[in-house]
Design a binder for these strands. Structure first.
Lengths: 155, 155
DNA sequence: GTGCTTGCAAATCGTTTGCAATAGC
DNA sequence: GCTATTGCAAACGATTTGCAAGCAC
């Protein structure tokens, strides 16, 4: 996978430094939509000199070059996703987890729904990115009565 | 309209204080998805003792009671919308404006697209709120060549 | 050696919190 | 009078900025 990350970063037109490769690899292998802080904390032990600034810069560069997508489903922080296939995100307001939602059969369903949405745009509007977020209660949490609610697993 | 705001707030189960009524009214009459800061700055002259904390508290209370919706289309700050009919939001990455996008004929199209999206959720997931954001170039900006780009009109 | 990248420290800014003063039933 | 609401000041936390040192072609 290391080679693959290296190549993908290079293909996107960015210099595949050690830090960038590590960050992309982590994001790719941990599809839980980590935040900058989660990535930094996870990689720090292996890369002691890694700076949070670099994580910020790197993820922004990745997003600008279409290598990853940034997800605005939290009120305060940004999450990142190395999976750039069309899919939705679901945030459980009880446990705080963010789930991927794919349509059966090659994501066609979500693409269709999104294309439909774009037809409502007035003349002259150009779409670059479209994102659908759903908030609610996930399956694990919906079986637990609300008054037995566990502490939020935010972050 | 003042009476109407008062009633709507009361119906939502909140005490319609002077501040709350003013904030709701401003939001209702300025459908440009203002931020907390924009509302605070706009109302400050008329209500010199108004505090930003009150604007934060009020909007959060409104959102919790379904009177307004919070929009997470910015990376840093939250925007608010007094229009709670189903609609999409489009953010122009050039001028920074956030537009409402309605479907023709009573929003049925957007509701359908959103319902479709919810069918992709696994068993046991309960939807409470769904939001679609589109980023791109708006009609006013798309007629201007990129190198003649105006300064961003953020905030 | 030139330009891109890194990383530290400080600054910024949206938002929250603690708490005392105030207003409305 | 009691409770919800307000508003000030301070704290907080995610992100950005300035800038000097390091790295890669």
């Amino acid at each position: 996978m290391s080679d693959n990350s290296y190549l993908k970063i290079a293909e996107a037109g960015l210099r595949p430094s050690v830090q960038r490769t590590a960050i992309y690899e982590y994001l790719y292998e941990h599809p839980v939509h980590p935040t900058v802080d989660m990535i930094y904390t996870a990689l720090s032990p292996e890369y002691p000199t890694l700076s949070k600034t670099t994580v910020y810069n790197t993820l922004k560069a990745f997003a600008d070059h279409g290598l990853v997508q940034s997800i605005q489903i939290e009120e305060d922080k940004v999450r990142y996703d190395a999976d750039i296939r069309p899919h939705l995100h679901f945030k459980c307001i009880r446990c705080g987890s963010v789930y991927d939602v794919f349509a059966p059969e090659n994501s066609r369903g979500i693409q269709n729904a999104h294309s439909k949405c774009c037809t409502f745009l007035p003349e002259g509007f150009i779409t670059q990115k479209i994102q659908t977020n759903i908030w609610g209660i996930c399956a694990s949490c919906s079986v637990v009565p609300a008054d037995m609610e566990q502490p939020h697993a935010e972050n």
